[in-house]
Structure formats: structure tokens, C-alpha cells
Amino acid sequence: MFYPNSPQTSPQLTQIPYGQQYAMMQRQIQQPYHPFATTEPQARLYPYHYQGPIQQEQGGFITQQSTAASPQYVQMRVTPVDQSIMSGYPNQTANGSSSSSFNYNIHPQQQQQQQQQQQQLRHHAMPVGSVPLQDDRYRKQLIVNYLAPDVTSTDLHELFSRFGELDGARIIYDKQTNMSKGYGFVYFCHAEDAKEAVERMSGYEFHGKWLKVGYSTNPLNIVPSNSSPYVHAGSRGAAG
């Protein structure tokens, strides 16, 4: 039997160049792979992502010199942007860049009308829970959420009447099932009393439920100042 490094198959040491006398086997001759043993700084910083320098080929596509990437890492192929796409944008300079302001050559009167329309939209648009300043009635009506099913309009009136005089209180019921929808409205005579009720009743436990109280901004629920107070009856038909 002959071994790869046996004296019968191995040459004389004098015939082997210096430095390879003890590297006779194939696994010894093959050098191990060192990912950080390279002179390129990109490979030292990113050993798993770097795959060699990027070269520009004919046709405008950018390719990489090395083989496919590892399945664990996804390499994105980048193509140059066609400058003709950006030619339609206004205020574009000769080098292809555009300024931040756009001039669509709008007539001054049209621009003024658009600004007025935007101001009107901001004036009428009102986020949930906010209180408008032009109508004091919005500051007097509250919406009470997360009410228990057994709470009546009379219970709601008695709960909030300790903060001040009320114009009314009612629970909203479903017309088909005649069941409470879980929320109601309270109408105060003074805005200061309503503000105190919002601050003190939010998070209050009532009939096993934690109440959420806020201003009601729905104009359909506003009680006119010259109208008669609501009837605080315990029956659902009268309260709904």
C-alpha cells in the first residue's frame, strides 16, 4: 500500500523548493479562506456584503464582478436614472436638479381664491374633541361614552347635575331594538360647569363602566337656548 506522503511516492527534499517541504498533501497545500485577509477597505468593513468592485458596462447597466450573493443577503441591482424623465418638472436647472418651490404660472386672482378656499376649509374642519370658538353652545354640550346598558337618562342627569344647572341629558337608544347604544349627551347651562365635568368625570366608574367624557361637536345635538329642557323620564321611549 502506498500513501500520498510515503517515501516511495514523495520526491527528495532537495528537489522541493524551500517553504513547501512540509506541504505535501493536497489539504495542506490548499490555503484556508480568510474573509478579512484583503487589501480593499470595503471588504474589511463589510465582509458579507462586499463582492468586489463595481464596473460600468456598455448599455448603462451596473453589474458586479463577483458571483451571486448568499441567500441570506439580498443584493440590489441599481440602474442609472434617465434624465429625460425629470425634464417635465418646473424650475429645473441645466444640471438636472430642481428647486423646492414650484411655479405653475397661476393667475394671481386664482391663487388668492385657492388660498381663501383653504382658509375656509381649515375654519370649518374641526378635529374630534375640539371646541370651536365662534359658538358658545359647543362648550356646553358633552358626550358621555361607555355607558352601561342599564343607565337611563334620569341617572345621567343626576350624575352630572352636581356640577351645575343642566339644560338636559339623554341616552341614545336603538330604534329597532330599543336598547341603549352605550353613549349619551349632557347639556349644561354654563360653559364653566361643562369644563369642570369634563375634567372630573373622564375615567369615572359608573355602573361598572369607566366613562369617557368630552365635548360634543355635532351641531345636530345642540340644544337651542330658547327651547324647553328635555324630559328626564326613566322610560326608554321618552328618553330616546
Rank of each mutant, 00 (worst) to 15 (best):
Y146I: 00
A43T: 13
E196I: 13
S84T: 10
A69N: 07
V198A: 08
T39E: 07
T14R: 11
Q119K: 14
A197L: 00
E158Q: 13
R170D: 01
Q31P: 06
A191I: 06
L133C: 09
Q141D: 00
W210D: 01
A191D: 03
P7F: 07
S99D: 06
F188E: 00
Q83R: 15
Y46N: 15
V81L: 07
I143P: 00
G96Q: 07
N221Q: 10
H190D: 11
S202I: 15
E199N: 14
A69T: 11
V74K: 15
Y138T: 03
Y138R: 04
S235L: 14
Q120R: 10
R137L: 03
Y46F: 08
D135M: 14
P4D: 05
R122Q: 04
Q92D: 05
V231G: 11
N178T: 13
R200E: 04
Q21E: 03
D82H: 12
S228M: 10
Q83W: 03
Y204V: 10
E158I: 15
Q72K: 15
V128D: 05
E158N: 13
G234V: 08
F185Y: 02
H207C: 10
Q116E: 11
S101W: 04
P35T: 11
K195F: 14
A238F: 14
Y183V: 00
G19S: 11
G52A: 12
G164V: 01
S228H: 13
R170V: 01
P71N: 07
N105M: 04
Q120T: 05
V78H: 15
D136F: 09
Q64L: 02
R170N: 02
Q92K: 13
E205A: 06
E196L: 14
V186A: 15
A148S: 07
N218K: 02
N105D: 07
N105H: 08
W210C: 03
T14Y: 07
A43L: 03
Q51K: 14
H207M: 12
S228Q: 09
Q114M: 12
F102I: 13
Q134K: 13
H207A: 14
Y50K: 15
T63Y: 06
Q12E: 07
Q8G: 08
L159I: 09
M24N: 07
Y18F: 08
H123W: 06
G208K: 14
D167E: 04
L142A: 01
Q56V: 04
G59S: 07
F163I: 04
Q141P: 01
P11V: 04
Q117T: 06
Q64W: 02
H124A: 06
Q58M: 08
P32G: 06
S70T: 06
G19V: 07
Q30W: 02
Y146M: 01
P53N: 12
G164N: 00
Y18H: 13
S84E: 09
Q58F: 04
K209F: 05
M25K: 15
Y33N: 15
S216C: 00
L159G: 00
A194V: 02
G88T: 08
S10V: 06
Q118P: 07
Y89P: 12
K181D: 00
Q21I: 03
I29N: 13
N95P: 04
E158W: 15
D155N: 09
P229A: 10
L220R: 03
P80S: 12
N226R: 05
Y146N: 02
A194Y: 00
M86R: 15
H207R: 08
I143F: 01
V186M: 01
I171H: 00
D135A: 04
L45T: 13
S87H: 08
F160N: 00
Q112Y: 12
S10G: 10
A23T: 12
P4M: 12
A191F: 08
G59L: 04
D135P: 04
G234L: 13
S97T: 10
E192N: 04
Y215A: 02
A68V: 10
I172Q: 00
Q119Y: 10
